[in-house]
Design a protein around this nucleic acid. Structure first.
Lengths: 336, 336
DNA sequence: TCACACAAGTGTTACGTATAACGTCCGCTG
DNA sequence: CAGCGGACGTTATACGTAACACTTGTGTGA
């Protein structure tokens, strides 16, 4: 404590306990079995807590050459979806002695700076959502082990991928609407370049192509209430017969669509059935409650973290997509 | 590159450029004016980008004794509010060469582990929301510079505080409802111990105490759609005259209240006026759109980061609360 | 002509930690 | 009683960077 205001180091602890710095490291690192006697170990622990010692992580990271920290790159956290992904990832990480640092790419669409400089932390690996596409070039630059969430499995980055079975979700939605009798579809698609949205469009089109007498139009919108509102308003004002089913790329878009439908003097589901995807809290906050596809965001995050741990340890990551399920609520009904 | 697979160090760059490691550090650290000739500097920069050199942050942090990284401790990111706080803080931080690491305390109310161990990053300071109360004990333990968001200015931690003028927001809400003619109030309060909610209750009670003939009941709920739904249902089923105005601690609670009101066969605002607080996207997604108090979350985050920078540099932080404003929409009307 | 400033670097060190390699004492065995 | 191994440590070192102190060569004013 000669220095007064600087944080105590392991050497300070050693001096207080009357042992060498190495002994402190052994005791506090739990590597002391058969190397340090129990009474001595106890003295060290007491001195450490007495001084309020906290190891200097920068020094530890330098010494060990690893940080046990991974970066989770996600799009702006404007829904709880990625918050839950984080929760799942963080839980698995903690169980393995890892920490997770969140990098939400800035909300404005402007290309992200270098997430690594920005997060400033030294990292062992990266988990990235394919929706945070603007950060990908920076990621590719580094040699860090990488796991992609909801990304093209055959993508050009040689990274492991963890995917939700979005295709199956869209299949279930389509089946549900078809069985209700719908034939005329409008697809409210997210205006974001990402595999996870491509697959929605592809699957919907493919499924409807199998059924004679169906038609499908598509309109794109940025993922926001306002964006969905204006896009849907424009689509509803278009000439030609009005579609009876509106398939939205996610719940937020559906919420925006609700507003447009109300403004047009129409009602859900009487005039138009609407479906979402995510099953956010929003889905049950709006009236009528939204028929949507439930994604298990926490399991998604857990799986992502497990995949990264596997990559770090040279093991092959788990195979297979995560299952999703259709939740039928009040926003879908037979067409009139 | 003798080692093959390990990352290049500044020494590797030095060797490639035919200079000393010190010269590399000078050039890349932008401290070379008048110390290294322009051609040499150019050679160094080329060698660095050739090798894909990235400085080892752990080593730099150790050497400099600071990390230019701060931690933002927030409650679970289930709304965009704290996402925007982060955006604001990160923007200011980046402009000063800092990074921000996000620590969302786990969604389950269980007490957070040690956020510092969990975030794993070496830190220069902390910004913490008073809502993440469970992490506070761990924070108090460290000697890190601390800024509290929406916390009691006279609080026991000797930390700088940055507050939104919530009291003024509640005043405006109350005034608005009183001027519409409401006299019977129900307060749907968040079931979270935090100064930011205490101040709501205090201000509402104080304001109504000034007006003869008013009455105020309070019901508590966890901050979720479901929680608000059940609490409001119970309150509406209670005996006695039904209140005509429902003041909610935030927008999410208001969304839950909407559902309870619908289920009771009542209508907003005809049977019951409802107000929120936050002005999230949710506020305009529900029908009718919510009268609420707009908080500038990004400015809040910016102010928080500026305050922390001030503390780090030994300057006094800015004084004064951040202004808020009432946004009147369709959820409030005169009582019938 | 000589001291001296100045440009253009280099050598060396310390930051705090974890661990490999090395000592020392002691009791015990053959 | 030599020697040997376990218990209990210590000493020394490296991780990669930034910065201080120092060196060398060159022009320059007195």
């Amino acid at each position: 404590m000669a220095r007064g205001s600087t944080r105590p180091t392991s050497r300070d602890v050693a001096q207080a306990a009357g042992v060498s710095q190495a002994a402190v490291s052994l005791v506090l690192g739990d590597k002391w079995r058969g190397r340090v006697s129990e009474p001595t170990a106890q003295r060290v622990r007491e001195a450490a807590s007495e001084l309020g010692y906290r190891p200097n992580l920068a020094a530890r990271n330098l010494r060990l050459g690893r940080t046990r920290t991974v970066l989770l790159v996600v799009p702006a956290l404007t829904t709880e979806f990625f918050a839950e992904v984080y929760t799942g990832a963080a839980r698995v990480a903690a169980a393995h002695g890892f920490g997770v640092v969140l990098y939400p790419s800035p909300e404005g669409v402007g290309p992200a700076r270098d997430p690594f400089a920005s997060a400033q932390a030294a990292l062992d690996g990266v988990i990235a959502s394919s929706m945070a596409a603007d950060a990908l070039t920076a990621i590719r630059g580094d040699q860090l082990p990488l796991v992609m969430l909801d990304s093209d499995p055959d993508g050009s980055l040689g990274a492991a991928t963890v995917n939700l079975d979005i295709a199956d979700g869209i299949r279930q939605v389509t089946e549900h609407l078809l069985s209700l009798g719908h034939r005329s579809f409008l697809h409210l698609a997210a205006d974001v370049p990402s595999w996870t949205f491509d697959v929605r469009a592809r699957e919907l089109a493919a499924r409807l192509a199998d059924v004679p007498g169906t038609d499908l139009r598509t309109v794109h919108a940025p993922i926001s209430i306002e964006g969905a509102l204006t896009a849907t308003e424009a689509a509803l004002a278009a000439p030609g017969p009005r579609p009876t089913a509106l398939v939205c790329d996610d719940d937020k878009l559906a919420a925006g669509a609700y507003k447009a439908i109300r403004r047009a003097g129409l009602r859900v589901p009487d005039d138009l059935s609407v479906t979402g995807l995510d099953d956010l809290g929003l889905a049950t906050a709006i009236d009528p409650e939204l028929t949507t596809v439930r994604l298990d965001a926490e399991a998604f995050g857990e799986r992502g973290m497990r995949a990264l741990l596997a990559v770090l340890e040279g093991r092959p990551p788990e195979e297979g997509d995560l299952p999703v399920s259709l939740v039928v609520r009040g926003s879908t009904a037979p067409p009139r």
